[in-house]
Design a protein around this nucleic acid. Structure first.
Lengths: 328, 328
DNA sequence: TGCAACTTTGGTATCGATTGCAATATCATA
DNA sequence: TATGATATTGCAATCGATACCAAAGTTGCA
């Protein structure tokens, strides 16, 4: 059912039907009523592709999510979606994974779809390849990155200050008397590099002169378990561990228990992300809440403002908050 | 940058450029090369709205998710998304919430967007209102519902057999010597009604004559906590509880602990959904895995087949599996 | 050289809407 | 009844692509 079908049956022109569909003035009440009746009868639903084509605007935005294993990220995506659905926008969501190749591919797809704005969620969007793809295919529309930033005129960033956050974790551990700290990392994302930086800065601020102890682990419970055992074998003096993600902290905590350590007196540890792992592990894990949900909400608001022709801050850093539980 | 801009600069017609863009034969190699150079130079990206309009197909599908608090649902949505992204489809995702009004609204939105297929995730799509909206606005495209079904020619269902599942939970409890059972329900969704039915059928099969004990609780840890206490005050004989969702089981379990019950000897309980609550609560909760991820994957495959002109089973019931942990 | 066969290219209609302008109808007033 | 003002309506161009068909150009062979 097109606007022409309706027009023919009503004995009017397509223009008139269009006016009725869009509730525009200048249509005789009786004509309007007749047309409205037909619209209902045939459940007419305007073709948004055609409309988008002529209007040069389709009320679609794109959402790219880097890591769907992180519930905060997916929740963030839905937050953005809800915010835009309220405004009558459609969201095209792609789960890009952590690689750059897929990301640039999806950037091109979104460009072809002529989305009017994009929200990217994840620190892994902060790469040269993404930057290039954006500047080539998306230089005309506003882009807001959650937990990332690119130095381009149309890109805005809403980031957790993970560096500062982790250094406050160091402070916390020191304040509880844990001064020989180690960091267990899972992978070298921009975000994790900041965490390590925060770890080192925290130690420095506390006057520690030696090189920071950093171990690598697989992103699994078992990986963390093994690495934690290895860590304490090689560095028995360690009495505080910061894990780059809660998952690791959960697996590591189990290792500590099995090794007979008393938590948190003898050894304390924290996770990062304040995920379900932190909340539901035994013992419950002290963690750093990056407030990704708030960040996503802020990103959505920014994009809304930008689409409305308004301004937004180019780069916002939000402080993370420590959620203290039973491991410190 | 449109195809005409490229054509003008190359000194050819739009038709020729179109042929090159779509890699169609019949273009002289030298012409082709010249055009390709320009396409790269200007980062030409074809307007998919225009393309969709003329081609009468835009490679978009819609995903409606009823409940984003259920991680399995959101995971399911991403599973579907990934499956379709592989095939070059775009997914428009809407989080509809549990109400019917929003659902019918989003069905209309998807219809205007001319999506070629839809996946709905959640039992709450199984309502009269949704059925009507679908038959009015979406009778021409294939729809697959995860955990739901509608009696319409273009609707396909992939469901967990929750009724059978819960009755096997009853069997499990009986086999462990727990014969005075209660069911704690959170809300009366079609899915939960089936669970209750399974509960009653299970009891009947085990030869229980009395009326099944069913309590209602808010969908919160605290709600389950309170209701569990009330339940055991009013029915001290109860020695087994099935909670309609893991969240309740987690909260209820805490109440049992606080009341001094010994789990699972004195009283046993289970959740449903096999969510993080089941896995991470202490004690770890025995739960029913509805295999929503597999269901979603199956739904995606069905829709792919249907879009490819193939057939799919109208309604598939998948057996749920008990994941036994520490509470039974 | 002439003609058929094939390759390459362009013209034009089309998809389903919107929109400015022109045309017509309606009405009030002189 | 004539006139101008206003209310309705339709025409035709447009958005950015695709696709069929015709036209032009090229090649091979008699």
């Amino acid at each position: 059912m097109t606007i022409y079908d309706i027009a023919k049956e009503a004995g009017v022109s397509a223009s008139t039907v269009s006016r009725v569909v869009n509730n525009k003035p200048g249509v005789h009440p009786s004509t309007k009523e007749k047309i409205e009746k037909l619209l209902k009868k045939y459940h007419y639903s305007p073709n948004e592709m055609a409309r988008g084509l002529i209007k040069q605007s389709n009320h679609m935005i794109g959402i790219l999510v880097a890591d769907i294993r992180n519930v905060h990220y997916t929740d963030g995506a839905y937050t953005v979606e809800k915010e835009f659905a309220k405004l009558g926008y459609c969201c095209i969501i792609f789960n890009t994974g952590s690689g750059s190749a897929e990301k640039t591919e999806y950037i091109q797809v979104l460009s072809k779809r002529r989305v009017e704005g994009v929200v990217m969620i994840g620190s892994t969007f902060q790469t040269k390849e993404v930057e290039e793809a954006v500047s080539q295919f998306m230089s005309e529309i506003p882009i807001v990155i959650v937990n990332g930033y690119l130095e381009l005129p149309n890109v805005y960033g809403v980031l957790a200050d993970e560096c500062a956050g982790v250094s406050t974790l160091v402070d916390l551990l020191f304040s509880k008397g844990h001064t020989r700290l180690a960091f267990v990392n899972n992978c070298y994302t921009p975000s994790n590099l900041l965490k390590i930086k925060g770890f080192e800065e925290g130690l420095e601020r506390q006057g520690v002169k030696e090189k920071a102890v950093v171990y690598d682990a697989e992103t699994t419970l078992e990986g963390a378990y093994e690495v934690t055992k290895k860590l304490l074998r090689e560095h028995p003096e360690i009495d505080g561990i910061i894990y780059s993600v809660d998952l690791l902290a959960s697996g590591g905590g189990r290792a500590l228990l099995d090794m007979g350590y008393h938590v948190p007196d003898q050894i304390a540890y924290t996770g990062i992300d304040n995920s379900v792992y932190a909340e539901f592990s035994t013992p419950k894990i002290t963690s750093l809440d990056n407030k990704l949900l708030e960040l996503s909400m802020m990103a959505a608001r920014f994009l809304v403002d930008l689409l409305g022709g308004g301004k937004a801050t180019k780069k916002v850093m939000v402080f993370s908050a420590i959620v203290e539980r039973e491991t410190t």
